[in-house]
Design a protein around this nucleic acid. Structure first.
Length: 556
RNA sequence: GGCCCUAUGGAGAAGCGGCUUAACUCAUCGCCCUCUCAAGGCGACAUUCACGGGUUCGAAUCCCGUUGGGGUCACCA
């Protein structure tokens, strides 16, 4: 008669530690009452998803505001999907957004006394717990092949039964230890399954920090806890790691609520207190093909990858602020009344979280992005533009470096004042918006044609430009510049103000706005631009005259 | 299909039985602002809270049903 102990020893001959040893090695944390220990546990399978940033941002927030600990654990048990280097990349990207861990996996190193924080390096720990479960008869080896499982699924489907490895369908559950022992000795491939004692027809009450209490069917599946490659599955690793790393609150995506019964049963079987759970709503998007809401998809949506925001030159804080408005809608009012400052003082609450997934709103992100960029002074924005351009935008980089002071002054137009211009939401757009300040951009703009108002003949335009070239000075300030322009206008019979013009349009060639438009198109190649005074002042009289002559000869 | 969650305007939402002829923010549109745009100011935008019943003197708010949406049913996390 083979005992469970003998079987366990056969499978794990080298495991000598016990759960008690682990309890001693990873003692409860010495933290003040109410301090939350949270964690972000990504898989190194690709770039950081916007939804993951959302989750990790909340983990960071909850730990910070309770005086607790936020750590990172790398869940690399799926060796097939692993992408080399993505763990490091994930960390870098989190740091860009200010989601810095106190402890755990840090990319090239790790920190903290609850490690290792990389699951593939924790195999010995999992084995201790699995061996214990084996000895207690709460786990057993299963020799079913993928084909066996597939056949089972088909059978259950045809009988309209719940699919899965449970109850009477759990064939290997009832093998004798002798059979198990023999097959393992024989070298048969196997996994280890947890022996569930749940009943699908019974409900358990579970509670969730964002959803409150609800009922859900008990788990009855004998889930795999130890894969044939010697690594644990998510469910099992979650229980073991969050127990021994002393996590108080597990914050994760909504997709996990369905497996909550498994986790509850696992913790109970091990005699451990389960952590609190917060299942977060997912960020959605309207699918253009179906018109339905769906999760932000790595494949289809650029905004699903945080790298998109970095490469386009968004300020990281802008995304974080936007995500916080999704997390807690009262945040929006709060940050507005705090003039977009001091986010760290905002108190996040799970209770104020919406239960269904918000649609990702680029427009609102842009709103925050514009506000934040407008708050910077000219040197701050220049420096940030340079560090962005250096990495992601060679054209912009070259342009800035051709004359850095000039660039700074362009960015400074209507900037350092109470109500600054808000032209930019991201650095990726800057060059396009300011291109006419540079020779290449200007040449390109006018080569595409000049859109003068059709009511003016080319003679009118030449007359206007000649007069402006001869008489318009940049002057002391905007006011005197504008008065100067008006005087020129009056001589050429342009009404000095709109009211006058509207009263008797036939008495005039046009109004002052028309004259300004002629100048604007000439100087910038476009109909919209910041104050012409600012433009001329920056371009300088010489370049302004050059452009006027250029346009005159072009339309002649 | 089973199970779980969910349903207020274009978007995020407040609302927790009378204070709501539904707050706030973004977007959109209109007007204003001694040159356009941006900014700013002002205003418009849900007579109604998916739909149908019910409870109540009274419902967006409570109950039931229907419908829609989302999630999940792996040796993936």
């Amino acid at each position: 008669m083979i005992t469970n102990k003998q079987l366990a020893d056969l499978i794990f001959p080298n495991v000598t530690e016990t759960i008690e040893d682990l309890e001693r090695r990873y003692p409860p944390r010495n933290l003040p009452e109410g301090a939350e220990v949270t964690r972000f546990a990504p898989s190194p399978t690709g770039f950081l998803h916007t939804g993951s940033l959302f989750t990790s941002m909340i983990c960071r927030k909850v730990a910070s505001q309770s005086g607790g600990v936020f750590y990172i654990r790398l869940e690399d048990t799926d060796t097939k999907r692993e992408i080399a280097g993505s763990g490091e990349q994930l960390l870098e990207q989190l740091q860009i957004f200010g989601v810095n861990p106190d402890e755990g996996y840090l990319g090239n190193s790790e920190k903290g006394s609850y490690g290792p924080y990389i699951q593939s390096k924790r195999a010995d720990i999992y084995c201790v717990v699995i061996k214990h479960l084996l000895e207690e008869g709460k786990a057993y080896p299963c020799f079913c092949t993928t084909q066996d499982l597939e056949a089972l699924r088909l059978e259950q489907e045809s009988k309209k039964l719940n699919p899965g490895y449970y109850g009477e369908f759990a064939k290997c559950r009832n093998l004798t230890n002798e059979e198990r022992y023999e097959r393992i000795k024989h070298g048969d491939k196997f996994v280890i399954r947890f022996r569930s004692s749940g009943d699908y027809h019974n409900k358990i009450k579970v509670s969730d920090l964002v959803r409150g209490q609800f009922e859900i069917a008990q788990n009855d599946q004998d889930i795999v806890i130890y894969k044939s490659d010697g690594l644990p599955t998510y469910h099992f690793a979650h229980a073991v790691d969050d127990h021994f790393m002393r996590t108080t609150t597990v914050i994760r995506g909504e997709e996990w609520v369905a497996s909550l019964p498994i986790h509850v049963e696992l913790f109970a079987a091990l005699g451990w207190k389960a952590p609190r759970y917060a299942h977060l709503p997912v960020i959605m998007k309207i699918d253009e093909e179906t018109g339905n809401k769906r999760k932000l998809s790595k494949r289809k949506d650029r905004e699903a990858a945080v790298s998109y925001f970095i490469e386009d030159g968004y300020l990281p804080e802008a995304l974080i602020m936007y995500l916080m408005t999704i997390a807690n809608s009262n945040f929006e009012e709060w940050i507005l009344s705090n003039h977009f400052e001091g986010m760290q003082d905002f108190v996040f609450s799970f209770k104020k979280m919406s239960l269904d997934g918000a649609l990702f709103d680029m427009g609102k992100l842009n709103f925050f992005a514009r506000e934040l960029l407008a708050k910077l002074n000219k040197n701050e924005i220049t420096n940030l533009a340079i560090s962005y351009a250096e990495k992601y935008n060679p054209d912009l980089y070259q342009t800035i470096k051709s004359d850095q002071n000039y660039f700074t002054e362009i960015m400074n137009i209507d900037r350092e004042k109470a109500n600054p211009r808000k032209d930019f939401e991201k650095f990726g757009n800057v060059l396009e918006i300011i291109s006419y300040f540079y020779k290449d951009g200007y040449d390109k703009a006018i080569s595409n044609g000049l859109q003068f108002n059709e009511k003016f003949t080319k003679e009118d335009i030449i007359e206007a430009l000649s007069a402006i070239e001869k008489e318009l000075q940049i002057g002391e300030d905007e006011q005197s510049w504008f008065n100067n322009l008006k005087e020129i206008g009056i001589k050429l019979n342009y009404a000095a103000n709109n009211k006058e013009y509207k009263a008797n349009p036939d008495n005039f060639k046009g109004n002052i706005g028309d004259l300004a438009e002629i100048l604007r198109i000439t100087l910038t190649g476009r109909k919209n631009a910041p104050s012409l005074y600012a433009v001329m002042a920056l371009l300088g009289l010489e370049e302004s005259h050059r452009r006027m002559e250029c346009v005159i000869s072009l339309i002649k």
